[in-house]
Design a protein around this nucleic acid. Sequence first.
RNA 1: GCCCCCAUCGUCUAGCGGCCCAGGACGGAGCCCUCUCAAGGCUCAAACAGGGGUUCGAGUCCCCUUGGGGGCACCA
Length: 501
Amino acid sequence: MERFNMEKTARTRFAPSPTGHMHFGSARTALYDYLLARQTGGQFILRIEDTDKKRTVEGAEEELYAGLRWLGLQWDEGPQVGGQYGPYRQTERKEIYLQHARRLVETGHAFYCFCTPETIKAEREKQIANKENTHYSGTCRNLSLTEADQRIAAGETFVIRFKTPLDGVTRVVDELRGEMVIDNRTLDDIILIKSDGFALYHLAAVVDDHLMEITHVFRGAEWLPTFPLHALIHRAFGWVEPKWIHLSVFLKPSGKGKMSKREAADLIQDGRSIFIKDLLELGYLPEAVNNWIALMGWSYDDHTEFFTLPDLVEKFSIQKLNPSPAAINFTKLDHFNGLHIRNLTVDDLAQRLKPFFEKAGYKVDIDVLRKITPIIQERLVTLDDAIPLAGFFFEEKVSPILDELIAKKLDAAGTLEIARKILAVLEAVPNLELDTVEPPLRTLVEKTGLKPGQVFGILRVAVTGLMVSPPLFESLAIIGREKVIERLKIAIALLEESNDR
RNA sequence: GCCCCCAUCGUCUAGCGGCCCAGGACGGAGCCCUCUCAAGGCUCAAACAGGGGUUCGAGUCCCCUUGGGGGCACCA
């Protein structure tokens, strides 16, 4: 156990904005938040950052809740569960930000700005034309409070900007990268409060993190450039900063850049997705998704890779986090999914498989499914794979293809002959249990002098309609003698018909 | 353009100065097992970006170059 984690309990927060589908990048941040909170006996807080009403998407918040719950990351405080530090939705905290911004203005750390978006835009264009760095020119920076208040009273619209130090440096510490020293001249007077009265992320996040007593902030590395500003805001209030942990960004599978919205949406055509809701539908297990994303940017040692959520709670540590960007590797997700599927109990797997069969249009008898499950368990990469592999168990009839029915190195006539012999064996046997069918069929193989694969292949295609199926004898027992014989007879008829031509 | 971050097999990574002619995993190749497909077992190919330092000793520390990534909004 990490000594520093033992010292105090952590309060972490997952603070998404409800502007689109939840993807595994945010899921990974939430996971780390959850792990640290659980490990230290602290709290995992969910806060909705919805200050930009224009970008808020209907239903996105619900998708977030569903995604977190699916992954098993239940939050201790936040929407739907409440808590002592609410409200947990930023649009409900507008006044808090306004008061805090005013406080910064009064202490000389911020200022009212009356410049219009148009003048700012013109200013920026001029700077670009002159090859200067774009930044706020400082027109309103030294307006007196009394003058500003008069203009506000007169009805002028305003924003509140942070008064960034003009010189010197700002030193900040990221837990993964150590100290960063930034020249204050490269920092802009960012907007804290928009003209609509809502706070921008920079102010809202800082104020909330402090008020909610957040101890550790996990967030994406895309926040690194504004990190000094956020630290400066904390300091302007005289507050103690939380520990900052900037997580590496995810690159597209090729490793060439971040995935665009378009590319993310197109992935689904290949049966892959970065969105949590899709992963569920594609047949991935939340256990596998957690395992996979946990390892993208974190490792435990030089050989352990299989982790359940409780394992992760126990073993996670900030100091083993990796700051370098990581390319997404979907085949590794497949691997973990197979591993976790095999780790499930038969009963559990059968329950999870059921909706997939139903979605495919099958009427599922859970007792039959329970019998099927053990023989397909180690063959599944995703839950969805079960349908093409085992759908025939729930079909009335199967449709073998003649060419596939004909055994390797045999013609239709030869295959027909063998098929008839198989039928004879099956009819002679009292039932189709493993112990009763397998020995006589193997004897048959010996008598024919053919390869086991040739003989069993004929039966397989006849009974399952598939070239590739779960183990044959186990399958026969589940399908039942009556259906097996019926299917075999249909196959024999098919062979006879082709033989007649 | 400016600012910031990063840099070990194709990919995810272990490595926090000697344990490393660099370990694991995915993927790839091969073999074994075998009624198909899997699963499993074994084997193989595959990396410290380059150059300077520091040191008795550098993948590990420092600098430069190169490469990659991120950010420069009244978005988060």
